[in-house]
């Protein structure tokens, strides 16, 4: 893939990934065929800041976990009223990192 395209992708999407994953993504994208560019652009990435806001407002019901695609943990949170409040607080501090990890998991299949 063209370096210019890759740089553009990294510039506009770096905030969705962990900083140590960005270099891996860049290297993989450079090796990829141009035909995959459209597919990669269609991957719906979740904003870590949005998931933090959702976690603060609706973390008790597990909406934040549902939003990032962690359905199992979302159901667990919903049934236990946010892990009796404890899980909700823990998630306030870890949901951004979890969102970045999920984004990477979503993108990975397209990078091969």
């Amino acid at each position: 893939m063209e370096a210019q395209k890759v740089d553009m992708y990294i510039m506009s999407n770096a905030k969705f990934f962990n900083s140590n994953d960005v270099l891996t993504i860049k290297d993989r994208l450079l090796e990829l065929d141009d035909s995959k560019w459209t597919l990669i652009q269609t991957v719906a990435l979740k904003d870590p800041t949005t998931s933090l806001i959702v976690s603060l407002l609706a973390g008790q019901l597990g909406i934040d976990r549902f939003m990032i695609g962690d359905t199992g943990k979302g159901v667990g949170k919903l049934l236990t009223c946010g892990g009796f409040g404890i899980w909700t607080i823990v998630d306030w501090f870890s949901i951004q990192s979890a969102t970045r990890k999920k984004n990477m998991e979503k993108l990975l299949p397209f990078l091969h």
Partner: peptide, 18 residues
Amino acid sequence: NDEDSEKASNSYLMSLVV
């Protein structure tokens, strides 16, 4: 790096909030 220090700091911050 920045993310590591954020996570490490969060471990203390969270114990404060709790």
